[in-house]
C-alpha cells in the first residue's frame, strides 16, 4: 500500500513519467535509425519527437512542446511521408546493410558520444547568478518582436527561399528527361 501510495506521489509519478518519456524518446530514436524500411523510420521519428515534446514539458515549456508536436510531427514528418508517398517506389527499395559500414558508423557514433559524455561530466555547469523566472508566453512573444526581431524576419525569408527552392527543384520544372 505504502509502496503504491508512494508510487502515486507526484514526484515519483513524475519520475516514472520522465523515465517513460525518455524510454519513448530513445525507442523512437532507435526505430528511426535502425530498421531498413523507411516507413518504420518515419514512425519511429514521430514517436521520438513526441517523446522530445514530453521532455520539453518536463523542462517547463509546454508551449514549445506543443510547437514541437505541431511543427515537427505535424509538418516535417508529414511532409516526409508525403514525399515518400508521392514518389511511389521510394519506400520499396530496401537497401542491404553492410556490416563493416554499420560497425564503423557505430564506432564513430560511440566516439562522439564518449566525447560528449566526457564534456558533460567534466564540466561544472554554473547557473547564472541572477535568474529570472518569467516563463510566460507573452514575454516570449515580446522577445520575438524585440530582441529577436531580425531573426524572426529572416526566418520568414528562409522559409520563403526554401519553399521557392523546393518548388523549382522538385516542382514543375523537373521533368525527368526520359
Amino acid at each position: 500500500m505504502n509502496s503504491v501510495q508512494s508510487l502515486i506521489q507526484p514526484q515519483v509519478l513524475a519520475q516514472i513519467g520522465f523515465a517513460g518519456i525518455v524510454a519513448l524518446t530513445l525507442t523512437g530514436a532507435l526505430i528511426a535509425v535502425f530498421p531498413r524500411n523507411i516507413l518504420y523510420n518515419i514512425l519511429g521519428l514521430i514517436v521520438c519527437l513526441t517523446g522530445v515534446a514530453g521532455i520539453f514539458v518536463y523542462l517547463g515549456s509546454p508551449f514549445i512542446a506543443l510547437m514541437e508536436l505541431l511543427i515537427y510531427v505535424g509538418a516535417i514528418c508529414i511532409s516526409i511521408i508525403f514525399a515518400i508517398m508521392l514518389s511511389r517506389p521510394l519506400h520499396l527499395s530496401l537497401p542491404k546493410r553492410a556490416l563493416p559500414k554499420v560497425g564503423l558508423a557505430l564506432g564513430v557514433g560511440a566516439a562522439v558520444f564518449i566525447m560528449l559524455s566526457a564534456i558533460i561530466s567534466r564540466t561544472e555547469w554554473q547557473p547564472a547568478a541572477m535568474r529570472s523566472s518569467d516563463w510566460s508566453i507573452a514575454t516570449l512573444g515580446a522577445y520575438l518582436l524585440t530582441r529577436y526581431n531580425l531573426v524572426f524576419e529572416v526566418i520568414s525569408l528562409v522559409l520563403l527561399v526554401a519553399i521557392l527552392g523546393a518548388i523549382i527543384i522538385a516542382g514543375y520544372a523537373r521533368r525527368s528527361p526520359s
Binding site: K101, L104, A105, V108, A111, V112, M115, A118, I119
Partner: peptide, 20 residues
Amino acid sequence: LQYNLMVMFAVLALVALYFF
C-alpha cells in the same frame, strides 16, 4: 558520402579527445 562524414566526425572526436 557517408564514409566522408565518418572521417569528418572521427576527426572531430579526435580533436576533442586531444583536449582531454
